[in-house]
Design a protein around this nucleic acid. Structure first.
Length: 448
DNA sequence: ACAAACTGCCAC
DNA sequence: AAACGTGGCAGTTTGT
């Protein structure tokens, strides 16, 4: 694969982007190292307690009998052998080498106390190893400086490592709190996180130039993920929760836009419904809800999702048509162009052709804004600084006296200036802001 | 003994 | 015909 900037501005974006991110790295983020140590100790205590409990279980006795001195709790191959061969539990799920899968989903189906404790222990180990120790290892004088690059991801997305600042847990509140509360503002500062609303869907509309999609992405009363959640789960407007919207977004809308189809979408959506975690806003389980609406099992649900897929294609007919044209054009030429001025040449799959023109330019909007803001803050000799970037959001450590200025400027740059620079952005852009006074976990929505 | 591959899980 | 995409990291297993 070969990627080339074909315009001076495209070249400048990466050059100046690298410089701006180097500046971001040099600022670094403040870490509450004492809290970090306390949290590591607490996690260790809980891990040890769970380990002791596991070792008293009969299943572990079998495990020990089978593997003797080689017994290792961290070995899922061993766990799989004990559960699915020795003890005779059954699973259809296989890894690509043919072994029984031992991931969270496969294990949860067993509904065994031993396995539940095992999964809880593994989650805590992940927290302690990847995140808590991952941060501790890299902190110098109370400051963490993750690397941010713009030249490594195939799609032109940004990337972060040592430690990866872009995958700090947030969805599990217990785990999220443990690690995020260790990220704190400097004295007299607050943490400010500004993210683009529905950036990827907006860029998607800009790329396909589907008039209905553009209209959809331009109307702040409309919300594609919420509206599709209503269709997928047969919900009324007031019944959609954050969770049901989340699943509609990540297991239907984006998958469909990037090349998946109703069978796989239905399968994934259904397993979330079956787990019982999803409810209407009024508290009815979605399983019961769908049953009362005539969808009684996975088969009926798949038919329903096939219908939703057809609706999506009807909603955005230009998109449906232009996908094929786009793919055929690439097949003829062997290369394609991003809206931000980069040419990508080489062998790509169909799904990559659907994804790359959107994922890269979406990040480029963020990068363009970040460059502007970093330059501005430097020029103004502000005490505040940008400390990180997460694909469609900018994290900053802002002095309280500079908060208003920063918010106004950030909104201006992110929603208006970038559109002036790039006329291909034919939808409005919106940003949401969160502020954390004590630590990153405590961030709260804040109206600019 | 070391490297690569595999598996799993965290984020957008 | 085929069936979302991008990343990092840890621990184990397999290959050289």
């Amino acid at each position: 694969m070969k990627i080339k900037p074909t315009t001076l501005n495209a070249y400048k974006l990466l050059h100046e982007g690298s410089l701006a991110l180097a500046e971001v790295e040099s600022h670094g983020m403040r870490i509450d190292t004492e809290r970090l140590d306390r949290t590591i100790n607490k996690a260790s205590e809980r891990i040890e307690k769970l380990e002791r409990k596991l070792k008293e279980d009969d299943i572990f006795k079998d495990w020990k009998k089978e593997f003797g001195l080689k017994t290792s709790l961290g070995s899922r191959v061993q766990l799989g052998k004990v559960l699915f061969e020795n003890l005779g539990y059954e699973t259809k799920r296989r890894t690509k080498t043919g072994r029984a899968k031992t991931d969270e989903k496969a294990l949860e189906e067993l509904d065994l106390p031993f396995v539940k404790d095992y999964l809880r222990m593994e989650k805590l180990k992940k927290l302690r190893g990847t995140y808590l120790h991952g941060v501790k290892r890299e902190v110098v004088d109370g400051i963490l400086r993750p690397s941010f690059n713009v030249h490594l991801a195939r799609t032109h997305r940004g990337q972060s490592d040592t430690p990866n600042f872009q995958n700090i847990p947030i969805r599990d509140p217990m785990i999220g709190k443990a690690i995020r509360s260790c990220f704190i503002p400097r004295d007299g500062h607050v943490l400010v996180e500004i993210d683009y609303g529905a950036l990827e869907f907006r860029v998607c509309a800009c790329f396909w130039k589907d008039s209905a999609m553009v209209e959809y992405a331009s109307d702040s009363n409309k919300d594609i993920h919420r509206d599709i959640a209503m269709e997928c789960y047969k919900l009324a407007l007031g019944e959609v929760t954050k969770d049901s919207r989340f699943y509609a977004k990540n297991q239907f809308v984006f998958p469909e836009l990037y090349g998946s189809y109703y069978v796989n979408c239905a399968k994934n959506l259904w397993s979330a419904i079956e787990s019982g975690d999803l409810k209407t806003k009024q508290g009815t389980g979605l399983y019961e809800h769908l049953k009362s609406r005539g969808i009684k099992g996975p088969h009926a649900f798949e038919n329903h999702i096939q219908w939703v897929e057809k609706e999506l294609l009807k909603m955005f007919p230009d998109w449906a048509e232009r996908r094929t044209e786009w793919w055929n054009k690439y097949r003829k030429r062997g290369w394609f162009r991003l809206m931000t001025g980069f040419v990508m040449a080489g062998v790509f799959t169909r799904n990559e052709l659907m994804n790359f023109p959107i994922q890269g330019p979406a990040f480029h909007c963020l990068l363009w804004s970040l460059i502007r803001l970093v330059k501005w803050m430097k020029k103004e000799k502000m005490r505040s600084c940008i400390i990180g970037q997460i694909h469609d959001s900018i994290v900053a450590d802002i002095h309280r006296d500079e908060l208003d200025d920063y918010l106004v400027k950030a909104k201006q740059v992110m929603t208006r200036d970038v559109r002036e620079a790039w006329p291909w952005i034919i939808t409005p852009l919106e940003v949401d802001c969160e502020i954390a006074k004590t630590n990153w976990f405590e961030k709260r929505e804040f109206a600019i």
